[in-house]
């Protein structure tokens, strides 16, 4: 019985939007997907390649920033690209 119960539970969970890659959901702590008047820019609708390039520049310290350099250093190039592709949706 227990496995069936588990199965029923599984089926009842709707498939949700593509899962956030590790770290990506944290971006929304500052970058609001909904506030239009924010000083910290929204990421929604941006070009993912542009966001990935910015993340690399922050990581490598070639673009001035306040906090983004410190955060971007927590991710590799490949991770940054995956995050960039997700946060712009």
């Amino acid at each position: 019985m227990a496995p069936r119960l588990a199965l029923l539970l599984l089926l009842a969970v709707p498939a949700h939007a593509e899962e956030a890659p590790p770290g990506a959901s944290g971006c929304f702590g500052c970058h609001s997907p909904t506030r239009a008047d924010a000083a910290i820019p929204s990421l929604r609708g941006r070009d993912p390649a542009e966001v990935a390039t910015l993340l690399r520049a922050f990581r490598e310290g070639t673009r001035p920033s306040t906090v983004m350099d410190r955060l971007a250093r927590g991710f590799t190039e490949a991770e940054s690209r995956t995050i960039a592709a997700w946060v712009v949706r």
Binding site: F28, S32, R35, A38, A39, I40, T66
Partner: peptide
């Protein structure tokens, strides 16, 4: 300024 902006975003979320 970012501190204030963060507060608006996090409370909206």
């Amino acid at each position: 300024g970012y501190a204030e902006d963060w507060f608006e975003t996090i409370t909206a979320d």
